[in-house]
Design a protein around this nucleic acid. Structure first.
Lengths: 248, 248
DNA sequence: GTCTATAACCGGATAGAC
DNA sequence: GTCTATCCGGTTATAGAC
């Protein structure tokens, strides 16, 4: 799918055009929102024709996919410091979630629309889609790093699933944030703060003998999910293509 | 907004027309999917003009709102029996979640699109919107009934929040189900089965003394959320209207 | 063969006549 | 309440230019 980047020929001819279109679009999304930015306006603003914009981006949604990727890089950069210097699990996780919110703030309005398309199983944008696999893997890898670099003693079976769980947890926080209209999204930050504490506590007690049966039950559910598809990071369902909605 | 139904004059003039349009649309959604059903086709099939359809339903999405309501009634009917005759919390909850999936099955494809719009904070469809408040209240009330009629001994503070938590849990299951492509959606049923067990276990141990600090922490988070808006069933933010996406 | 542009098409939504 | 005529924006077909 994604061919290796050629040595010196990178940014060949239209690579710049593509980048420019994306840049323009992202700016406009920030300023006028997603729906407020028409493909026509975006193309014009970028100095290209409508058809040309579609040459580089299959659909308007694919601009969002590009946004996701950039957004993730911002996120990585924003929490790199904490991940290097902090060993306490709670602080690490907190820094990562905070960074997620902070880096997303400029796109608060935009992100609503984003989640909208993200929830559609047929959209290439949805976080569980094949097309999102690489990014999903990178995102869970971030949480793997959160766990790995921490001083916390974690049940090995749990540690296996923790990155994915934390990734889903982050999605929950983001979903809340999207609906958050409090000034500065303070409520989201507070929720994040408190739920991080809660999660860290839960991780600790998972080891606690009387909790073991429940922990085991939970891990079984996760293992079961892993065996199949859907939430798995290694999907084996490249054959299932639902192209159209019609069937007549 | 919704005026009380007048005594004898119900089904006045176009009430039937409205009902007929909805009926037609729902059938077509089931048969051809949401996107596969154009407003034009729906109107034509129902024997009215496009403009007329829009007279009764503000937007295509508003047809979904109507679907939600019907869907909830189906759900209620499907679990009424179990709720009357069963006292075991696990069985009650299991019956309700199972019923949710079963009654939703005919709309599996449709529901994907449904969640799509549901995730948009600006959509009247989103489960947290003012417009959805009545239905949200009814849905959580169902889970309140699940808890209330059970023989389980539940920490009073927890019992207060449990209905809403279970409602959110159900949304999670539905979200999984939407992405579930396994035959008969078996994976969703199994996930539901197992997570119901898990939840019931967690409710039990919440009372367990060593778990108390964590339970308290969790309840604090919930109480905090309740004090503000967003997930609350009593929104005090009727002043925040985000009509358009443009701002130039 | 890589890029760019113009002219449609299609479907959700609105305006305004009857 | 019901219609027709239009708008508007995502998307596609297609024809050329480099």
């Amino acid at each position: 799918m994604t061919p290796a980047t050629l040595p010196t020929t990178r940014t060949k001819k239209g690579e710049q055009t593509k980048a420019h279109i994306l840049e323009t679009a992202l700016t406009m999304f920030r300023e006028r929102g997603y729906e407020g930015t028409t493909m026509r306006a975006g193309a014009t603003e970028a100095g290209v024709s409508l058809g040309n914009a579609y040459y580089y981006f299959e659909s308007k949604e694919h601009l969002i996919q590009a946004f996701y990727e950039r957004s993730h890089l911002d996120h990585l950069a924003a929490c790199a410091d904490a991940l290097e210097n902090e060993v306490d699990l709670r602080n690490r996780l907190r820094a990562v979630i905070r960074a997620k919110l902070s880096t997303s703030m400029p796109y608060h309005r935009f992100s609503g629309l984003l989640f909208k398309t993200a929830a559609d199983p047929r959209s290439p944008l949805n976080p569980f889609s094949d097309e999102s696999t690489p990014l999903r893997r990178e995102s869970t890898e971030l949480f793997a790093e959160v766990v790995r670099g921490s001083s916390a003693r974690i049940h090995p079976d749990l540690e296996l699933h923790l990155p994915k769980l934390l990734w889903i947890y982050q999605m929950g926080i983001v979903l809340f944030w999207i609906h958050d209209t409090s000034p500065g999204c303070d409520r989201s930050y507070r929720l994040a703060e408190r739920t991080v504490d809660l999660i860290v506590q839960l991780i600790k007690v998972a080891n606690f003998p009387p909790m073991r049966p429940i922990t085991r039950l939970a891990l079984n559910v996760l293992a079961d999910l892993e065996d199949n598809a859907a939430l798995s990071a290694t999907p084996d369902r490249s054959d299932q293509r639902q192209d159209s909605d019609d069937e007549e």
